[in-house]
Structure formats: C-alpha cells, structure tokens
Amino acid sequence: MAHQVFEKTIRIHFGDCDPAGIVYHPTYYVLLNKFHEDYLHEVLKVGFIEIRRFGVGFPVVGVHTDFVSPSRPGEDVTARLWIEKLGTSSVKFAFTISKGDELRLRCVETMVCVRLDTEGNFVSSPIPDEIRARMMPYVCEDGDERLTFRS
C-alpha cells in the first residue's frame, strides 16, 4: 500500500451495543462518522461545518458495508480510513474496523461535493483545490488493493 492510511483506536462502549451484547449495526455508522470527522479535522484541517467556508458540502450518496464479525463492550478496535477513488466532485472513502488481525467491518462511503445554486438546490461542484491537495496522500494508487464485498 503506497498511500497513507488514517488510523485511530475506538473504544466500544456498553451504550454502543444491543441486547445481544454486540455493536448495534446502525451504531457503526455513528462511530464511522465520528472517526471520519476526526480525519477531516486532523488531515483536511476543516470539519463538516467549517467546510462551508469553501462554499461546499459533502453529503453521502452511497454506502456499502459488510459486518464481518461482532464487536463487544470494552473492546478497543482500530479504525482505518483511506480514499479508494478521488474524482472531480466525488470521493470514495474506504473504512475498516479490526480487533488485532480480526476484521470486524469493511465499508465504502461515496460522497459528492456540492454547492447550493441560486434556487437553493444542491448541484455537483469540483472539490476545492486546497481540500483535494490534503486528500491526495490518502488516495489509492494504481495496483493498490481495494476493499471487496460479499455481495
């Protein structure tokens, strides 16, 4: 892997879990969103709200997830993020969550850079150069392995 990977440890809390004692699947999306926001602040130097200073936003337009193995309260898991594809106005973020060598989750989220037109509608917009430049070290290169999914 020639590209950089953003990585953090996440603690699984009791409140993240369902009555079976495993992470409730929608909670993973909350955990990934918080982790993604950490990436935005630490790498892109701008959060979901502050990105408006560029006149754009990045709504999620697609998600593909495999829940591979359960996570339980009290576990420390490792979240990883990189970019599988960076287009003119879209970006495909790849995420994994693991406990040691055991994969717990793999996910790809596609986001589109948008701005508001004069009527208040979202329209596709090129990713601002400053944001693109900070993303570049995390983008997969030709030949890098991509996430594969069960279906």
Rank of each mutant, 00 (worst) to 15 (best):
A2M: 13
Q4D: 10
E7S: 14
T9P: 02
H13R: 14
P19M: 10
A20P: 02
I22Q: 08
Y24E: 03
Y24I: 07
H25S: 10
P26Y: 11
Y29G: 00
Y29S: 05
V30Q: 13
L31Q: 05
L31A: 03
L31G: 03
N33Y: 03
K34I: 08
E37I: 00
E42M: 13
L44R: 02
K45A: 14
K45Y: 06
K45L: 14
V46F: 00
I51F: 07
F54H: 14
F54L: 06
G55A: 06
V63K: 13
V68D: 08
P70D: 09
P73N: 03
P73Y: 02
E75D: 05
D76P: 01
S89C: 12
V91N: 06
K92M: 12
F93Q: 05
F93I: 04
A94P: 08
T96I: 06
I97Y: 11
K99D: 12
L103S: 06
C107M: 11
V108S: 11
M111K: 15
V114R: 07
L116H: 14
D117I: 09
E119I: 05
N121R: 15
S125M: 07
P126H: 02
P128I: 04
D129W: 00
D129T: 10
D129C: 00
E130M: 08
R134M: 09
R134Y: 03
R134V: 01
M135L: 15
Y138P: 05
C140H: 08
R146A: 12
T148W: 00
R150D: 03
